Simulated scan of single mutants.
Amino acid sequence: MPDDTDTDTDADAEAEAEAEAEAEADGLTVGQVSTRLGVTVRALHHWDEIGLARPSLRTAAGYRLYTAADLERLHRVVVYREIGLGLDRIRAVLDDPTADVPGALRAQRAQVAERIDRLQRLGAGLDRMIDAHERGLLLTVEEQAEVLGPGWNPDWPAQARQRYGETTQWLQYVERSAARGPEEWQAVAAAVTDLDRALGEAMDAGVAPGSPEANGLVERHREVFASYFPLTREMQVCLGRMYEADPGFAAHYDGIRPGLATWFRRIVDASARAHGIDPDTATWR
């Protein structure tokens, strides 16, 4: 294996060859053209190989040398490449006297306009995603009250971000939130309200945990909750516990029907057991 000394020697030899090339002929070396035009040596070699922009001169040692005319052509190649023309189109513009240059440029301009529009829409989407990460819910306080009802607390999204902001589920939630406006949130709120009503009616009717009716409501809860983030069965068990134990959630469900928070936890646990999950050991995963 060559050591650093060998590498330095090779670099010195190349530099000497470049200097010799400068002295031997009236032209610019590849390295000089690369620096002057801001393109890579590799690109210059490639354009030479495909016949797009070849140097007119060679030194006795075979090194490429570019004349003033060569440099002018290279400059035009760089300009057309920077505005997005492909190499084949550039060749046609430079070499084909019948080429419709204004037409080619207009077509390229249309593509650039489309790209700008796409990037602007991407930028707007990124702004919404950033806002969703920071705010959780992209609705004004007035919109929240109108869409989510008078019982909605506009401080809840900020509290949820503080509590869950580092979790995968928060990221999934904000991705969904960024894509929603008032109408979409209205649909989500309506689905939650309908589910709450169905839970209360089922409890009144004496639906037993583990019954087909109860299991259907458990599945419906998972489907509705997917509006926020995907909910596994074990995660649903954890939510059932929280609904029963957390004063805020318990007040919500028991406000629908006294004892509903506990009844809901029981039907979730029964459904989990039917799927081979022990509710006592279930974790958030």
Rank of each mutant, 00 (worst) to 15 (best):
S34A: 08
E49R: 14
H45K: 09
W47N: 06
D48N: 12
I50Q: 08
T29A: 04
S56T: 10
W47T: 03
S34C: 08
E20M: 11
R42D: 10
A25I: 13
A43P: 12
T29G: 04
V39H: 06
H45Q: 08
A25Y: 13
E18N: 15
E20Q: 15
L44M: 07
S56R: 13
D26H: 04
A53T: 04
T29D: 01
E22R: 13
V33L: 04
T40F: 04
H45I: 05
G38D: 10
H45R: 14
G31V: 02
H45G: 05
R54D: 10
L57E: 03
Q32E: 07
H45M: 10
S34V: 03
V30K: 00
L44R: 01
I50F: 05
A21P: 06
V33C: 05
L44K: 01
A43R: 09
A43G: 10
G31T: 05
I50K: 01
G38H: 08
A53V: 03
R54E: 13
E49S: 10
E49T: 07
P55D: 00
E24G: 01
G38V: 04
A25G: 14
L37C: 12
L57T: 11
L57N: 14
A21Q: 12
E49Q: 12
E22T: 08
V30R: 00
A21K: 01
S56V: 03
P55C: 06
D26Q: 06
S56Q: 08
E18H: 14
V41Q: 13
Q32Y: 03
D26C: 00
L57C: 10
W47C: 03
R54A: 14
D48F: 05
T40I: 09
R42S: 10
E22M: 13
E22D: 10
A19Q: 12
H46E: 11
E18W: 13
A21T: 14
